[in-house]
């Protein structure tokens, strides 16, 4: 895979639309994880594949501009979120990584369950996306 500027207008146009759907779906998978198949791992991998598709269709520069943060930082942030979720419960006197949940009533959505496990899963999600992208980009960028 060469990540120089290709000239595939059709591909680029269709990818813009398709990746949007993949992103939406990956986000759904991530949120649905607690009750249906999905979760941080699956959502993260799906997002990573969406970004990969973008890289395939466009060149490196464009995407780096479009996604203006480093994936390496994303790993760190993910790990921090996961650890912080664990420590939060310690602050309330529960063992490390105890999660809580409750049901809330929202307008439009109706009754929604909110759980601190979601934050932990968010950490997992970020680490998975970050790690997968870091690994692949590290090889792809290495043109020497």
């Amino acid at each position: 895979m060469k990540l120089q500027k290709p000239n595939d207008v059709m591909l680029q146009v269709s990818m813009r639309v398709i990746t949007l759907f993949i992103f939406a779906f990956s986000f759904y998978l991530f949120l649905a994880g607690h009750n249906n198949p999905g979760g941080g791992f699956i959502g993260g991998l799906m997002t990573a594949s969406a970004i990969l598709v973008l890289y395939l269709a466009f060149d490196m520069k464009t995407i780096t501009k479009a996604i203006p943060f480093s994936f390496t930082t994303m790993i760190g942030v993910g790990l921090l979120i996961a650890v912080a979720t664990g420590i939060m419960s310690m602050l309330f006197g529960y063992p490390f990584l105890t999660h809580f949940f409750d049901y809330f009533l929202f307008p439009l959505f109706g009754e929604v369950e909110l759980t601190t496990a979601l934050f932990f899963d968010l950490g997992v999600y970020l680490v998975v996306v970050g790690a997968a992208m870091t690994i692949i980009l590290a090889i792809a960028e290495d043109d020497k």
Partner: peptide
Amino acid sequence: GGYNIVNVILVDFRGLDTMLEILVLA
């Protein structure tokens, strides 16, 4: 409070394993 048992095991019951796992990935 989760219906997906596999996911609940991962993020809640055995959360520490998962934390170490993402550490390995990192």
